[in-house]
Design a binder for these strands. Structure first.
Lengths: 108, 108
DNA sequence: ATGAAAGGGGACAAAAAGGTCACATATGGA
DNA sequence: TCCATATGTGACCTTTTTGTCCCCTTTCAT
């Protein structure tokens, strides 16, 4: 059976929080500083730092220090790896099986 | 900005646990009863029932009752929905941007 | 019918996650 | 230099999650 990479878990857990997903969504457009990000959510700067810590730990955010500022960049590579191992294998013929058993119904 | 469906969160949270991911992996091959699943993990039947409850709540598992048995089927549709909204948009040009800034390096 | 087997609900304890605060460090500019 | 700005660490509290247990219901076979 296909085995799970040890750090897949960190990526999944990082994605499990809506604030962190929203942060990634913001970083998709451009890198942002920690304070900038904290100002956009109803949590304190320290709370944002914890979230960023989780994201960095999972490899989803790369840090670039520029003077006294810290720019947080999105790194989409872990998401891509995860998609290869976990998303695509689930898209195959399971739907057909469910349809055949009448547990799922075609839309419309 | 793209908005998140209210139940995306349930799917992400369901996927955040390694036991639950392993269960989904098992169900990819065929549907299994609760007791069967519980016997394959180092947790009690009750613990497995809770995990299945989370998966059912997220729509990732569909239940078929057959006599006194309950067959848990994988439903890959929520994973597919999630992939469309969250995985693919992250695969676009962010890598190029990171490479251009020297924050990422080509393999090999 | 009656007993064994499979499944489910609710209470509850332990562990992990999410959040805040106080305090400390580093940087850029007047 | 001197100070405002931006960030980082550790302790701490609260909520959520994870797992176990007891007890009950349903179903199948004898």
């Amino acid at each position: 059976m296909e085995r799970e990479a040890p750090d897949d878990d960190a990526v999944f857990k990082a994605l499990a929080d809506p604030t962190r997903r929203a942060v990634l969504d913001l970083l998709r457009a451009k890198a942002r500083t920690t304070g900038d990000l904290a100002g956009r959510f109803p949590i304190s700067r320290f709370g944002m730092m914890k979230h960023l810590g989780v994201l960095v730990e999972a490899g989803l955010v790369l840090v670039e220090r520029r003077g006294r500022e810290r720019f947080n960049h999105l790194n989409p590579v872990p998401i891509r790896v995860l998609a290869r191992r976990w998303i695509r294998p689930f898209e195959e013929d399971a739907v057909d099986r469910l349809l055949a058993q009448g547990l799922l119904h075609r839309p419309g």
